[in-house]
Amino acid sequence: MTAAATAPRRPTLAVHKFASCDGCQLSLLDCEDELLDIAQAVEIAYFLEATRATAKGPYDIALVEGSITTAHDLKRIRAVRRQAKVLVTIGACATSGGIQALKSLADTDDYINAVYAHPRFISTLDTSTPIADHVPVDYELRGCPIDRGQLLHVLTALLHGRQPRLPNHSQCVECKRAGTVCVTVAAGTPCLGPVTQAGCGTLCPRVGRGCYGCFGPAETANTAALADHARLPVQDGGAGLDATATRHLFHGFNTNAPGFREEGLRHG
């Protein structure tokens, strides 16, 4: 018996795209130093952004990017789920509906007419919804885009049969660990960090910008207290935001995420 015949079969990996910008898939290709190790640890069986060569399912791990915005998507996500042993959604679109979920709060035809030269070619649902609204999801990776360290961590954990560690606490925990000076307290900058899930590596606060919530709501997020404080005048310790600015703060990349959606609407 040859060595090849006794070698264990590598787990297969599939990457699927729905309504999205491809940035989260790119995070996988962005794992430059680790890409060869990944290719050795798994068989990349379906990943159209990397190669048009595909292998048939079922797949051991499916990474799903993007939100559900068409009737065709609705059918396809069910097929993807049937073909996947473990399904991991990646990014704000797949986990909450993404920035395109803004259309869920507006008239879809208005959007189509505003954007497309020939609206009659467009066939779309009135909503942009997360994958978990339609099929069971095993793990979610938040972010716009996802953090490649978290992606590697989840792949590694799945390969070795270990629970991935995906903290759901606030971004503030990450900022304080990094020694980043709080932009809200020290500069009055509006920041969603206290109600946003950690994981990005303090990308925005470490360059003096407020967190715009791309990782979506943290556990036990108190969006109302944060919003009310941000609307206080600057001299009273707030950020002096008006209703529109407050709504925009919450209705960004995770418009449709529970908590953010309602908080934005409260400042309608």
Binding site: E34, D37, I38, Q40, A41, L152, H153, L155, T156, A157, L159, H160, R162, R165, H169, S170, C172, V173, K176, R177, C182, G193, P194, V195, A218, T220, A221, N222, A225, L226
Partner: peptide, 27 residues
């Protein structure tokens, strides 16, 4: 009023609580 963000504990000079996390290499 509380955001449960944890800032008070993390900037407190005596709050010492820590968690322990494991990681593995791909291979």
């Amino acid at each position: 009023r509380c955001l449960a963000c944890g800032n008070c504990t993390l900037c407190c000079p005596t709050c010492f609580c820590a968690t322990v996390e494991d990681s593995t290499s791909l291979d």
